[in-house]
Amino acid sequence: MSRESILTRIRAANTAPAQPPLKPHAAPASLNSSGAGAIGRFRTTAVAKGVTVVDVDKPAALPLAVARTLTATNLRADTIRVNDPKLCELPWHDASLAIARGAADPLDTLTLSSALAAVAETGSLVLGSGPDNPCALAFLPETHLVAIARSNIVGTFEDALAILHTRYADNLPRAINIISGASRTGDIGGRIVQGAHGPRQLFVFII
């Protein structure tokens, strides 16, 4: 059987004893930050990737902040697809915005997800898939909005892994999506163009 044949050949080739397991490493100091430093750094690194970062005082203020941001960037305030119950219950109507629940539809232009963590070292968002946050929300629309709690902005990917571990232990959800800026390609003439297959624009709301 192929499985046994491959494993046998590997074991025959690995005549030297296996090297001892590597010690967990620390993130390089130059990439590390914490607390308010991490929040400031996240803002810088995310903006450098073309992400729009918006601060929101409290969850209830999110709908209005979204409405203002969409207007300011000349985006049509179409229905927003969102399925996270904590986000769905916010006063969207007060901001004259409509939401639709469920998984992403190919015709959706605007979606909203909540992130588990944001990582300051690279300005990345960490999303975990599940019924609240179906992962196509992050890939199908032209514009993707992401909400992140200020307390979940961490310095490094090691810190983000700790959050994942607390939440999921050893059984990860179907997808952990680490998103670092909008979709892009450099495949035509070497020039970077945003919005290759996924969103052209990415907005982050720090709550």
């Binding site: 399925n83 992962c135 179907r174 998103i179 670092s180």
Partner: peptide, 19 residues
């Protein structure tokens, strides 16, 4: 980091809406 780094584990779960 590239724009998308995806850690995929298995098929969709019973309560997943996509995947």
């Amino acid at each position: 980091m590239t724009a998308y780094t995806t850690i995929a584990t298995g098929p969709r779960r019973a309560d997943d809406l996509d995947g």
